[in-house]
Amino acid sequence: MTTETTRVVPTASTRGITAYRGYRPPPGMISWALHRITGLGVLLFLLLHIVDIFLVNYGPEVFNELLFLYRHPVFRIGEIVLVGGLYYHAANGVRIILIDFWPAAYRYERQLFYGVIAVFLAGFIPTAFLMIRAMLVAGGHA
């Protein structure tokens, strides 16, 4: 039974190095921690966002007054972080769902995580580029 287990889930020791991992987190912990942090971060934004969109009902003056926030450089950087968080959470969410419904996929855990990073970068780099460009263009007259 033990051999079955180790064959299925290779650990550091079965890879022949050493079981001691020092301060390195166990595999999967970083992707999980990032998933939780990004999920909670997007949720926090969403709560504020529902309040700000509610203000459309108070007419153009009130709403447009508030939008200076979205255009403020500090907030714009926050928006880039937010979009990055959402993209990561979505890409990693797909990996979780894939493994849930197709258990054999966990053997490619590591490759799938690299896939998540690749999908994340493929989405995030162009989006961040456009957001930074828009920010620099607006910079002069914000």
């Binding site: 007419g59 153009p60 255009r71 928006e79 959402l86 456009l130 957001m131």
Partner: peptide
């Protein structure tokens, strides 16, 4: 939604109208 707001448009175009 985020692509519509930040890729197709920018936050400089978003207002009440």
């Amino acid at each position: 939604h985020v692509v519509i707001m930040h890729v197709v448009n920018t936050v400089d175009e978003i207002d009440w109208q």
